[in-house]
């Protein structure tokens, strides 16, 4: 039922859009403009110091850093990790209340008002892309003025994760056909902020879109390809110069 959801009244939207993101690690410098842009757009709670110590910091997109080698021949690699919106998502079949499912636009969706907080999905996500609200997220009264009215403020006891800025997708595609929406006409907050343009977002069902063309890039790879999760998020490998 919910594992391979194709809502019954699939309209032409099911073939119109398939949203995807491509992240070029060779352009990424690890500046984290994406991280803060996402927090601002999606009402992600403020991570107090204690959140990091308890291991409960919220970042829908986070920047992971890996070391390679030892001083002086050492490299740091950055990789922004967000929900990969897997075609074959491990989080979806384990949800007992169908609060997470794959929609007909290629997105892995989390429905907050369905979620009962079993956290099975979070445990099953190999990318650790999901975060659980152990506490009611609080903002000081004044800072609530900044909250985005287009995005639900989550409550205690629900799981949340990257939605690919679905509020922006909805707004941009509302009552429109794909041909009305030029490639790159709108972007999720992270892609929009990325200073090196390492991130690209677009419609895979449009063969002319930038993301479609990048699917054949020689540097492409999916994170944990061997797990068979079939992510729609594609990474392009970093390039190392020989002898450097």
């Amino acid at each position: 039922m919910a594992t391979q959801t194709k809502p019954q009244s699939a309209t032409d939207r099911s073939t119109a859009f398939k949203w995807s993101m491509v992240i070029d690690l060779d352009r990424c410098t690890g500046c984290e403009a994406c991280v803060v842009a996402c927090q601002s757009e999606n009402n992600v709670p403020i991570n107090e110091e204690s959140a990091f110590i308890e291991g409960r910091a919220f970042e829908w997109i986070r920047l992971e850093r890996y070391w390679e080698g030892e001083w002086p021949d050492i490299k740091a690699r950055f990789i922004p990790v967000l929900c990969q919106h897997c075609e074959n998502a491990p989080c979806e079949p384990v949800c007992p209340v169908y609060a997470t499912y794959h929609n007909n636009e290629g997105l892995n969706v989390q429905v907050y008002n369905r979620c009962v907080g079993t956290r099975y999905c979070g445990a099953n996500c190999p990318y650790h892309a999901r975060q659980f609200n152990f506490w009611e997220p609080v903002w000081p009264e004044d800072l609530r003025h900044q909250l985005n009215p287009d995005v639900t403020v989550r409550t205690r006891g629900v799981m949340e994760k990257c939605s690919m800025c679905i509020q922006r997708i909805r707004r941009a595609t509302r009552s429109k056909t794909p041909s009305d929406i030029p490639d790159g006409a709108f972007n999720p907050a992270c892609v929009q902020a990325c200073p090196t343009s390492a991130m690209t977002f677009g419609n895979l069902n449009n063969p002319e879109s930038k993301v479609s063309k990048l699917q054949n890039d020689e540097r492409r790879y999916h994170m944990f390809e061997h797990l068979g999760t079939a992510p729609t998020t594609l990474y392009l490998k970093q390039v190392d110069t020989h002898g450097a």
């Binding site: 110590i53 850093r65 990789i79 990790v81 650790h128 994170m223 020989h242």
Partner: peptide, 24 residues
């Protein structure tokens, strides 16, 4: 306890995967 992101999620990247080596 140094507050940091590292370690909250154990590193999941396979070593070496995101890199290709080229000759200039």
């Amino acid at each position: 306890g140094l507050p940091k992101l590292e370690g909250i999620e154990e590193p999941r990247q396979l070593p070496g995967e995101p890199v290709i080596v080229v000759f200039r």
